[in-house]
Design a protein around this nucleic acid. Structure first.
Lengths: 205, 205
DNA sequence: TTTTTTACCGACCAAGTGGTCGGTGGGGTG
DNA sequence: CACCCCACCGACCACTTGGTCGGTAAAAAA
């Protein structure tokens, strides 16, 4: 009965270590042996649980990467009062985590999107789907912000979402080369300035 | 006498094809043989001209990548009247080029930065230097914009430059997954909205 | 107890990888 | 003419890659 438990535990160990190394070194630059060596497992164990390296990575996307993005960027925005403040603090928290993580290798989603782009369409599709969910979530939040009177009605929610995602991807990419603290401060400052343009002014009193 | 010319020509052919393949498939995922095969050249030719694959790539950065970034993102901004319109049209041109290039694999600089980050510090340094030049150029332009009365004096030029670079990196990363036209339109729309916040209003007549 | 299932082992394989090295042939120089 | 320089050739090397496969031991099922 606990065979299945053991199976899951081993698979999960492999996935966690696999994601760690893929994130650090890139997918193509990390060998299956690298992962197995650092877990003291054998080739046999790996190919007993996964069909191929690609299949393994897809399972990592579905089990780990999706969760990470949800927890970091999607759920914090959903439960909000003022949507702008919610997005601001969500982004700032994410940047803070990155800033204090000296093993930061950038935004996991955009790193892998870049690496797999036009080289593995199946994996690209899985990654793009995560982006889409994020985007849809932002658009929904912004639409709700309109009905709640936080956002000017004439604003193009999809354009705002695109702009937000762009700037976030970019700042995360920049932060890997150091000087994170200043970058984060500057980014948040200008994000707030940007929000001022589209936020509905003179709401309460 | 024209021995040297021939040498330069062959090296240049290798660099151009090398950049093309590195850009498409990534550095670590492109073998020296791949490049040589598509040029009908031999290993001997390659290692006669370059010390190693890494040395080869550094020469590509210095000879080709620097030029591309200058021509695309730095020079167009320098010679400008209204700096905001200059940055807008510079970015829009760059995005247009990407949009109509169906072999677009993203922003060359951020792709390589991501790939080499913490894996090859020497190459990372060369790439970071290009970023720095871009950033300094933007900051200078923005400072001049202040003295010319285009930009509110209290604005943090470095923060604006960081925000601009971030958003550009991000939108270029997003555009590789298609729907470029809409993405470009939305991005430019919000970029202009952002500029409205910081641009000095009621300037002329 | 016997049998079956299954998690895991590790030697092995073909196809690459970056890099080496003894050549070769044609143009320039003496 | 003889000589040398040098761009270029391609077989070769040690090593790594993703993936295979026959085996083993222990737990579950009979």
């Amino acid at each position: 009965m606990d065979k299945n438990l053991k199976r899951m535990a081993t698979m999960h160990r492999m996935q966690v270590k696999g994601l760690e190394l893929f994130y650090q070194n890139g997918y193509y630059n990390t060998s299956v042996d690298d992962i197995l060596k650092s877990l003291s497992l054998s080739k046999g164990a790996f190919y007993h649980h996964f069909q191929s390296k690609e299949d393994f990575f897809i399972s990592i996307i579905q089990n780990l990467i999706v969760q990470k993005v949800y927890a970091m960027l999607i759920e914090p925005v959903e439960k909000c009062d003022n949507p702008f403040r919610a997005i601001e603090s969500c982004f700032d928290n994410a940047l803070e985590t990155a800033e204090h993580n000296n093993m930061d290798y950038g935004f996991i989603l955009s790193n892998f999107m870049t690496e797999f782009n036009k080289r593995n369409t199946e994996i690209t599709t899985y990654l793009r789907d995560i982006y889409k969910v994020w985007e849809v979530n932002l658009v929904t939040t912004l639409q709700r912000a309109k009905t709640d009177g936080y956002l000017e009605r004439h604003i193009d929610s999809e354009a705002v979402a695109t702009y937000l995602i762009s700037s976030y991807i970019g700042i995360r990419t920049l932060m890997v080369e150091g000087n994170c603290k200043a970058l984060r401060y500057r980014y948040m400052q200008q994000l707030k300035a940007y929000f001022k343009t589209i936020e509905r002014s003179s709401l309460v009193s």
